[in-house]
Amino acid sequence: MVTAGHCTSGNGAVLNPSQSDYIGPVVRDNWEDGHGSVKLVGQRCCSGDLALYRIDPGSFASAPIRKGGRTSNSSRAVQDYWRRWAQEGGEVCTGGVTTGEKCGWKVAATQVTFRYSGGTTARNMVVAKKASGSCTVEGDSGGPVYTVDTSRRAYAKGIISGGGADRSGGLLDSCWLYFTDIGLANIALPGTVARY
C-alpha cells in the first residue's frame, strides 16, 4: 500500500492509527525527516511525499475508500487509477482518516515545491484549493486523493501530504491541499496501483 512518506520512516514499520497493531514493514520511502522529499535511487527528480509498505499476512487491508472518519462503515469502490497527470482546474476529492470524504477541491498548480512550517520541503507536489467547507487536518496525511465518476466509483489521483486553511479553518475559509500525483507513485515505486 502507499501512504505519505512523512508518515513512515525508511526500514520502519507501519502501525494502525491507535499504534496498537502492526500492519507491515516499509519497503520504500522518499521522505527524510528534517529535510523532506529526496530522490530515490534511479530517479531523476523528487517524487513528492511517498512511502510504500507491505501488508503483513496477519493484517487486513481493503481497496474501498471510507467516506466518513475512522468509525464510518460507508465506503466508495475504487475502480482504477487516473491515467492522466493532474492538471490545473481538475476536480478531486480527499478521503482522510480523520475528516472522511471531502470533495470540491480544484487543482491550482502542479510540480510545486512547498516548505512546511517545520522546515521540511516537499518537492514535485500538486496544490488544490476549495473556497469553502472544512479542510483536511493533521491525521489525514497518507489518505487518498481521487475523482468520482457518474457511477460513484473512485479513480485514484494521489496521496494527501498536507494542507490547511487561509485563516481560522472555519467553514467560510479557503482550504489548501498538497498531494503527490498518483503517476509519481507508479514511476517511483515498484509495481503499479492495483485496480478492482
Results as ranks from 00 to 15, higher is better:
V2T: 07
G5W: 01
C7P: 01
N11L: 07
A13C: 05
A13K: 13
S18I: 03
S20P: 06
S20L: 07
P25G: 08
P25H: 07
V27D: 09
V27R: 05
D29R: 04
D29C: 05
N30E: 02
D33Q: 13
H35I: 12
G36H: 00
S37K: 00
G42N: 10
Q43E: 13
C46K: 06
L50R: 04
L52Y: 07
R54E: 15
R54M: 14
I55M: 10
D56L: 06
A61W: 14
A63E: 14
A63D: 13
I65E: 06
K67T: 15
G68D: 09
S74K: 15
Q79G: 10
D80L: 06
R84A: 07
R84P: 08
W85Y: 15
E91T: 11
T94R: 05
T94E: 08
G95D: 06
G95H: 02
G96K: 04
T98S: 08
T99L: 04
K102N: 13
T113M: 05
R115L: 05
R115A: 12
T121H: 03
A122K: 00
M125D: 05
V126R: 01
V137W: 10
D140C: 05
D140W: 08
D140L: 06
D140S: 04
P144K: 03
V145F: 06
Y146W: 10
S151A: 13
K157I: 07
I160G: 01
A165P: 08
S168D: 10
S168P: 00
L171N: 11
D173I: 03
L177S: 00
D181N: 02
I182M: 03
I182Q: 04
N186M: 00
A188G: 08
P190F: 02
T192S: 10
V193W: 11
